[in-house]
């Protein structure tokens, strides 16, 4: 299982939430599945990150119904979060291209 590069967790969470509100467990699962089970986000990192992003105003939490009808704390993107997602995505692409260039051309 690959180690998550530091600072990328925020980007992944923002991206996952871009498709709709989810609770903490769901976010972890979705990342796990979408990465073809390569990434496994630990709860010990996920929750502090969620709380941090909530404090920064990128995401907001609301108690609501989860898909199976039980009460759950659902996180969703705010306007600011969407902006943040765009910036981070751009940064990440630039970084990835740069690293690939180095790896291939060096």
């Amino acid at each position: 299982m690959a180690e998550l590069l530091s600072g990328t967790l925020d980007l992944l969470v923002l991206r996952v939430l871009n498709s709709g509100p989810l609770h903490g467990f769901g976010i972890g699962e979705r990342i796990h599945v979408l990465s073809n089970e390569a990434l496994d986000v630990e709860e010990g990192s996920l929750y502090p990150a969620l709380y941090r992003m909530e404090a920064k105003g990128w995401i907001e939490a609301e108690w609501g119904q989860s898909e199976r009808g039980r009460k759950a704390k659902l996180y969703s993107l705010t306007k600011e979060g969407r902006r943040q997602l765009e910036t981070e995505r751009k940064n990440w692409t630039q970084l990835a291209v740069a690293i690939r260039d180095i790896l291939e051309n060096a």
């Binding site: 630990e42 709860e43 010990g44 929750y47 502090p48 709380y51 941090r52 909530e54």
Partner: peptide, 17 residues
């Protein structure tokens, strides 16, 4: 085991809020 120390996680979350 997977979750680790719930209290530690909570404390770190609290710090953010």
């Amino acid at each position: 085991r997977r979750f680790g120390g719930v209290d530690q996680v909570k404390e770190r979350c609290r710090d953010e809020h």
